[in-house]
Amino acid sequence: MTALLKIDNVSQTFVRNDKSSVEALRSIDLSINEGEFVSIVGASGSGKSTLLRIIDGLLAPSSGSVFVDGTKVDRPGPDRAMVFQQDSLLPWKTVIENVGYGLTLAGRPKAEVQAIAQRFIDMTGLRGFESHYPHQLSGGMRQRVNVARALAVDPKILLLDEPFAALDAQTREIMQTELLSIWQKSRKTVLLITHQIDEAVFLSDRVIVFSARPGCVKTEVAIDLPRPRDLDLKRHPAFIEQVDHIWKLIEAEVRAGVKQGA
């Protein structure tokens, strides 16, 4: 298999206003194959969101480079689409307009935008809510719009930045299964950032475990649980064992982070 996404020795150092510098990421090497579902987990401060923003092209790395399909990333592009953690939907646009936003920006004709947006509205279970505004929707529905908007531009790689972090536990479980079924339908390559270990194990083919301060790859865990998966899997001993294994890898850092108040 060829790597669709290749992260080559990426480091990121931020310089604060008081001239002190913070090393967010140190020499990250990663490659992700086409059609793979990969998650990155790590304690807060492990720079995982920073890495995602570098991959999306929103942030230039201090050193190293990112390649998508062999092309070096230097700005956001149509081959990648990001699903954001917080509300990043335009509050003055309807669901269908929000879903079609990326296509509209790309200058695609209106009828085509409508048709494509409708397809992804159907896929994400938003049918009937086309002309609602984001403030009229629940958190879970809003994240569906967020996912649909990213899928609508037909990216090669879907980047998800803790997409369900703001949802309550039950909604999160439902959204996880829906994300799985959408992934199975669309066969996108997915890179998910999360702090929920069970979410990462449940969804992924591989889980990359990050260390904090500076963020670097600690280890990688292959998840060989059978697919298709449903929520029952979460009670399976093999599942619990994997979650536990990953938790032990980052437990010390999470505890340190809690003590620092980070």
Binding site: D56, P76, G77, A81, D87, S88, L105, A106
Partner: peptide, 19 residues
């Protein structure tokens, strides 16, 4: 976050302004 999302979808500065 709204500006970030627009940038992520490759919006030009003018598009960020108008949308």
């Amino acid at each position: 976050p709204l500006i970030e999302a627009a940038r992520s979808f490759n919006a030009t500065p003018l598009q960020i302004f108008s949308t």
